[in-house]
Simulated scan of single mutants.
Amino acid sequence: MPIVAPMDVDGFVVRAGFLGDAAYVATGEGAIHFVEVGETHLAPHKNGLLAAEPSFDGKSLITSGDDGAIYASSPDGSSELLAERPRKWIDLIACGPNGAVAFASGRTAWVRLSDGREKEFAHDRAVGGIAFAPKGLRLAVSRYDGATLWWAGTEGKPVNLTWKGAHLGTSFSPDGKYLVTAMQENALHGWRLSDNQDMRMTGYPAKVKSFSWSAKGKYLATSGANAAIVWPFFGKTGPMGQSPLQLGTRSDVLVTAVACHPKEEAVALGYQDGMVMMSRFEDNAEVLLRRPGGHPITSLDWDNAGLRLAFGSEKNEAGIISLQDG
């Protein structure tokens, strides 16, 4: 049976996950908790914490807040100020190769390179989401009526991808062939980047706020329904013409967070009522990891071995679920 070890946290959990063997939980109250052999507690931001993302090398947690600051914090208790935009709410961050960090506020996105240099990317409309391509310093910025692809390390011309509507969270496929955005309406939109072919993924009863690529990048698991909607991205046309898998279906409770297993074709699902489940792609076999009865799950993430799952909820709940090896 899975073992659930709760963590003592206050407030909304912005992000829960692992840096190597150390589990972390970052809350909207501004606290960052690291748990390894002992516990380390940090509060680098003056006020609230708005976004958190593990660095590309997995050694630090990059956070931003309503103080306009971006910090890199580590389980050893250190915090380094990477960038600052006074009087701006920095609610979007992304981590890329070679120590690059992107952040955004309003209509502007910035990229901080590892040597401390910064590049600014201005847009006509507010930035909805940012993501780095898996290879190379290419930054995707989602916005109203589409997305823009920028070269952060060179002066190459940007590429504009167009589709009407407000585009929010964004993600590249692990092979870099696709870009997918969650829209303000209850839908996903995607582009095949080789020819900018549009891909429309609809039918959700709620907004998609969480998505996760499978271990081999063949599937994209998403929240926003009473099951994890898992789109196939193999073949020449990606999900077009293929039906998604529907895993962990419950009659009247929405999935609010998803995290694909790092090694197996399986996904962890967090629900509106605090329940956490694991479901296998092949046959929809299910394992209950945490019983219902809490607040909506906001964040899920596996450790590298796929034996521990960190979770957090909207209010005062977080922990580590340990699976038995084999």
Rank of each mutant, 00 (worst) to 15 (best):
W163D: 12
S171T: 11
T154N: 06
G165M: 00
G165H: 00
F172P: 08
P158L: 05
H167I: 07
S171W: 03
G153M: 07
G153D: 12
L168P: 08
A152K: 02
G156W: 03
K177Y: 13
W151C: 09
W150T: 09
V159S: 04
S171H: 06
L179G: 11
P158Q: 04
E155L: 10
S171Y: 04
E155R: 13
T170G: 10
N160M: 11
A166G: 07
T154R: 02
T181A: 08
K164F: 14
L161C: 09
T170I: 07
G165A: 04
T162K: 12
L179N: 06
L168M: 14
G165L: 01
P174S: 13
G153H: 08
H167E: 12
G165T: 01
K157R: 14
W163P: 12
E155M: 12
L179T: 07
Y178L: 10
T170Y: 01
A166N: 05
T181H: 02
T162Y: 14
T181D: 04
L179F: 06
G169I: 04
K177I: 13
G153P: 09
K164Q: 13
S171P: 09
W163A: 15
A166F: 02
A152W: 00
K157H: 12
A166V: 07
P158K: 03
T181Q: 04
K157E: 14
Y178D: 08
G156P: 06
F172S: 05
P174C: 14
T162E: 15
W151N: 09
T181M: 03
T170Q: 03
P158V: 06
W163N: 13
G165N: 03
P158W: 06
L168I: 10
P158N: 05
L161K: 00
A166W: 02
A152E: 02
T170A: 09
T170R: 00
H167V: 08
S173N: 08
E155D: 15
L161F: 05
N160Q: 12
T154F: 05
K177C: 15
L179C: 11
A166S: 09
G176K: 00
A166E: 05
T181N: 05
K177E: 15
T170K: 02
T162S: 15
S171M: 06
W150L: 08
L161A: 05
K177N: 15
K177G: 15
G156A: 14
G153T: 08
T154D: 11
P174G: 13
N160S: 14
K177V: 12
L161I: 06
T170L: 03
E155A: 15
W150K: 04
K164E: 15
W163C: 14
T170S: 10
G156S: 10
G153C: 10
G156L: 12
H167N: 12
F172H: 02
A152Y: 01
H167M: 12
A152I: 05
